[in-house]
């Protein structure tokens, strides 16, 4: 087990090095000169000033040297400075990370709980109208563009019904003391329940918008996994023993059917991080996604480079955790692995 984790972790190193190289290539070699235009060297800089700016940012160094310095910096946690704010990029990312994490957790919760419920119900009611409706919902959930769904949610629930606010994390009039950077934790720590509930209301629409796609994928996976499991011999045995249908479903079928579903939930995280770019932009959610789009539009290359690398690191580590979890959850895999060795 330990050997497996170690081996997989070591395999991450070349992949991450490759990601850094790819990102470096995209942002430094192929892209336009960042010293031209606003934000970087200054809007009215002349050729000499722009060269000086390029020199001071190491952009006139040979490419291999630039890449070496970039990787060296990344390993030691120095991701460079934002061209725009002149602040260290890592600091900027860490300041926005909590908002994205809160959004990702909320939408994962919503999508997995609702997705599993929908999947289980439609597998029990197979080929009935409930099942058909659920599957139509799933098809739509997979096909609807997240940003359009987000806009529709705002128009209906915020614009027409005034049920939920849209935009920003918390009402401007409420002041929250920053301790951890997580609004949910900070408001609870300071006992500011008004702000806590206001935060939850702000969180509702973005997390539903972000979670719709995963919800559909999870529901579909749960349904097919449940149908698979319900055909197994041990389910027939459980029923033959005279167990109630509820017990058969919850204790015997669901427990086994959920193993592949957990993997799917984990693998959705990559899509979630990508989707956050769009959701945060629509809802003005001050997380990493919105920051990425702003940086791209401002040609703030160190930031884009760092964010993509950062997200890739999170993504590959989650995939590793999901794989390991899969082995832990399903004893059969472990057994065949040992048997094979």
């Amino acid at each position: 087990m330990f050997k497996y984790i170690l081996k997989r972790s070591l395999l991450l190193i070349p992949v991450l090095l490759g990601v850094s190289f790819a990102v470096f290539l995209i942002m430094r070699v192929f892209s336009a000169d960042p010293s031209v235009g606003e934000g970087a060297a200054g809007k009215y800089a002349n050729e000499e000033q722009r060269q000086a700016w390029r020199d001071s940012h190491g952009l006139n160094d040979p490419i291999p040297k630039q890449f070496f310095l970039f990787v060296k910096g990344a390993v030691t946690g120095d991701l460079g400075k934002s061209y725009k704010t002149k602040l260290p990029v890592l600091e900027e990312i860490l300041a926005r990370l909590p908002a994205t994490i809160e959004l990702a957790i909320a939408s994962t919760l919503i999508s997995s709980v609702l997705g599993i419920i929908i999947g289980v119900i439609s597998s029990i009611k197979k080929n009935t109208i409930i099942d058909n409706l659920a599957m139509i919902f799933v098809s739509f959930g997979i096909s609807i563009p997240m940003f359009w769904f987000a806009i529709m949610l705002i128009i209906i629930f915020s614009g027409q019904l005034h049920l939920f606010p849209s935009g920003d994390v918390i009402d401007q009039s409420l002041i929250v003391e920053s301790i951890t950077g997580f609004y949910s934790i900070d408001t609870l720590l300071t006992g500011n329940f008004e702000a806590f509930f206001d935060f939850l209301r702000h969180l509702t629409l973005p997390s539903i918008a972000l979670g719709l796609h995963s919800m559909a994928v999870v529901a579909r996976m749960t349904r097919s996994s449940m149908l698979d499991t319900l055909n197994q011999d041990y389910i027939r045995t459980a029923r033959a023993k005279g167990l109630s249908e509820k017990k058969v479903i919850t204790n015997h079928a669901l427990r086994n059917a959920l193993i592949p579903v957990i993997t799917i939930i984990g693998l959705q995280l990559g899509g979630l991080l990508g989707g956050a770019v769009l959701t945060e932009t629509v809802f003005s959610w001050p997380g990493i996604g919105k920051y990425t789009v702003e940086s791209i539009l401002n040609s703030d290359f160190p930031v884009v480079q760092a964010v993509v690398l950062f997200v890739a690191v999170i993504f590959v580590i989650t995939n590793l955790v999901v794989d390991v979890l899969y082995v832990v959850l399903d004893p059969r895999i472990k057994f065949t692995k040992k048997g094979a060795v």
Binding site: A22, G274, A312, V316
Partner: peptide, 9 residues
């Protein structure tokens, strides 16, 4: 490497 970056990003 390509797969380890979310596609839209």
């Amino acid at each position: 490497v390509v797969l380890s970056i979310p596609s839209i990003l």
